[in-house]
């Protein structure tokens, strides 16, 4: 894609399991194992998958909050995989461009800082909005996310979960980023508040021309905002398609199972339920061949032996399945 803002190629994050004296490495957890994606300007990419499939680690690795083991992350064509190779000004420039919103609104705000500090200190570090402008900018951001400027002197514990998540969003926006990664931004909130936060994020996207990567385990959440959806299973991408295509024409059995699990508010609608048996295998020893084959409801003989690669099946639809 020529106008890709962010390109991730074959990203891998393997966590060593250490043991005994001198931290001998015993084994690895293959948290993210070869994920590729592109994000265009103004686009929203949804990443879905069940717990433990490496969605969050993938987001963290893109921001380099977790060190990638392999692969390449490029922002505007510049390799940013290894931040220690970047100069300080390059790193600061990069940090300014990409931000993250966390799942848990309680552990994501420093309890000892007021909102003013939470929003103002990053601006100070980056030398943005000097002097009186900074206060104006803080008030502006607070109003944008639906809080009042006089809230600025308060501490995070004085706010509710939904309000705290708004603060988290304001913090992600305080440096005028281009890319915002939302790591399950609404899954810790009540359903009524989820809608508010999602709408807020959509509004902000239009206003500030943001690109989003929204990580979720709930398809219903990403369907409202995503242009494209990527389905992950055990650290790998199993299917990736534009949102409408994925909903109407899911190809991978795992995607089909996920979609059939989305609750439908219409009680008369009849739908086949595809149920999956068992749990996600341990990412420490992923099954050989297709990592989904032990739980697949239509395995082929080849699924045990060969690992399927992502193949293009028309449009922007990619799937990793032998069928």
């Amino acid at each position: 894609m020529p106008d890709a803002l962010l390109t991730v190629t074959d990203l891998k994050v393997h966590f060593p399991i250490t043991h005994g004296f001198f931290s001998r490495i015993k084994d690895y957890v293959f948290a993210v194992d070869g994920v590729s994606l592109t994000l265009a300007k103004g686009e929203t990419l949804g990443i879905v998958g069940e717990s433990g499939c490496g969605k969050t680690t993938c987001g963290m690795a893109i921001l380099n909050l977790v060190e990638p083991t392999g692969g390449r992350v490029a922002y505007r064509g510049k390799d940013i995989t290894n931040i220690s190779g970047l100069s300080k000004s390059e790193l600061m420039g990069l940090r300014k461009e990409m931000q993250i919103i966390f799942q848990d609104p309680y552990s994501s705000l420093n309890p000892r800082m007021t909102l003013q500090q939470i929003l103002g200190v990053p601006m100070k570090i980056h030398g943005l909005y000097p002097g009186r402008e900074r206060q104006e900018r803080i008030d502006f951001l607070l109003e944008k996310v639906g809080l009042a400027p006089e809230h600025g002197k308060r501490y995070p514990h004085e706010f509710s979960g939904g309000q705290r998540q708004r603060i988290g969003i304001a913090r992600a926006l305080c440096l005028d980023p281009m890319v915002v990664i939302g790591d399950e931004p609404v899954s810790a909130l009540d359903v009524s508040i989820q809608a508010q936060i999602i709408n807020l994020m959509v509004d902000l996207q239009e206003e500030f021309n943001l690109s989003y990567i929204i990580i979720a385990h709930d398809l219903a959440v990403v369907e409202h905002i995503s242009d494209r959806i990527m389905v992950m299973y055990l650290g790998k991408v199993v299917e990736s398609a534009p949102y409408r295509e994925l909903y109407t024409n899911p190809q991978h059995p795992y995607t089909q199972a996920l979609l059939s699990a989305v609750p439908n508010p219409d009680p008369r609608a009849r739908r086949e339920r595809v149920k999956l048996e068992g749990d996600v295998p341990s990412p420490r020893r992923p099954p050989g061949g297709c990592s989904f084959h032990p739980r697949c409801f239509c395995p082929l003989t080849g699924c045990r032996a060969d690992e399927p690669v992502l193949r293009h099946i028309g449009g922007d639809h990619w799937v990793a399945c032998h069928r």
């Binding site: 931000q99 993250i100 552990s107």
Partner: peptide, 17 residues
């Protein structure tokens, strides 16, 4: 490993800070 420390890292806070 708490998220606010991760967020600070993402915001460009230095290690000492």
């Amino acid at each position: 490993d708490l998220n606010y420390v991760k967020a600070a890292q993402a915001l460009g806070y230095g290690k000492i800070r």
